[in-house]
């Protein structure tokens, strides 16, 4: 049942992405409408999958990489649907849905089995921390899509190459506005995620902040977006500069989310690292908790 839901979601996302890419080539109103319906249907199915998984595991399904990537994808599609409806730019989907699809595809690489949760992590904060964090990530992913579009359109306008693509892309102001709007929603969410994470860490490990790589990189991500927001509000960073920063921010965010789990050992990465150590005979050191805390058992 769970696998069926997952793969039908994946299938619909695939079709929706193809439809949005086709819209990029032939921007017909009907095609845009169809794409919108497809992605919405995919989203509902994805919600069903997540709910099913939640009931099966008895906890928010964001505890291994498979679940996290799927949930990330779900949040991106959710945020995208809202933004797309507000700004009425179908073409944003041509840039955002591929990201959601790729995340879903990547999530299939990782084992899907529901693993028992580390007892230390069992807390209501799991749901709060992860949901808030992922919706924050998702808004930044949409901002990333809009920023890419901005840079392309800006390039056309500056170089005076006003081809078919220029015609299809929305105006710079609109793209910049989407970017800014995402920032104003994403940044508070990211801040909340860090705060709720710290509170959760306190209840789980007895310390608010332990400078594990995930925490450090979250803070770096936060600073990048804080700088962008500050720049926007005070010196009026907008347009190209803001777009570039939104893109940099998203890459830092992706590293925080995936790279840290895979490359840097730490508290957040227990399961994925275990998996890699067991299956790949990788050169990664078998993870040992950096912070030794009586409540926090060993890696498995």
């Amino acid at each position: 049942m769970n696998a069926v839901l997952f793969y039908s979601t994946l299938g619909i996302y695939f079709v929706a992405t193809v439809a949005y890419l086709a819209y990029l080539i032939k921007p017909r109103e009907t095609l845009g409408q169809a794409s919108r319906w497809l992605i919405t249907a995919g989203f509902l199915l994805h919600c069903a999958f997540t709910l099913d998984r939640y009931l099966e595991a008895g906890r928010t399904p964001i505890t291994n990489l498979h679940e996290s990537l799927s949930f990330f994808s779900l949040s991106i599609v959710g945020v995208f649907i809202i933004i797309e409806r507000k700004y009425k730019v179908f073409i944003l989907g041509s840039f955002v849905t591929p990201v959601a699809l790729i995340l879903m595809l990547v999530s299939t690489i990782f084992p899907t089995a529901i693993t028992p949760l580390n007892p230390a992590l069992k807390s209501k904060w799991l749901a709060v921390h992860t949901t808030v964090a992922f919706f924050g990530y998702a808004t930044f992913a949409v901002a990333f899509g809009a920023a890419i579009m901005y840079l392309i359109q800006e390039h056309f306008l500056k170089s005076k190459k006003l081809g078919a693509m220029y015609q299809k892309l929305p105006s710079l102001d609109k793209l910049d506005d989407i970017n800014y709007r995402c920032l104003t929603f994403g940044f508070p969410l990211l801040t909340l995620a860090i705060i709720s994470g710290a509170i959760w860490a306190e209840t789980a490990w007895g310390t608010y902040w332990s400078w594990d790589p995930k925490e450090t990189w979250s803070l770096i991500t936060w600073f990048v977006y804080a700088a962008l927001l500050h720049g926007r509000l005070t010196t009026g960073w907008r347009g190209k500069k803001a777009a570039i920063l939104a893109i940099i921010g998203f890459f830092v965010l992706l590293f925080t989310f995936i790279g840290v789990n895979l490359l840097l050992p730490g508290l957040h990465s227990a399961q994925s690292l275990d998996f890699l150590a067991r299956t790949k005979k990788s050169s990664f050191p078998i993870w040992k908790p950096i912070v030794s805390h009586p409540d926090f058992p060993d890696g498995n």
């Binding site: 359109q153 306008l157 006003l162 220029y166 015609q167 892309l169 929305p170 105006s171 710079l172 102001d173």
Partner: peptide, 21 residues
Amino acid sequence: ASSAVSVAFAAVELAKKIFDD
């Protein structure tokens, strides 16, 4: 009919791609 064919209109269309409104 989707593109401007006078200089003045071309300028307006460009402005709309920069400013939107």
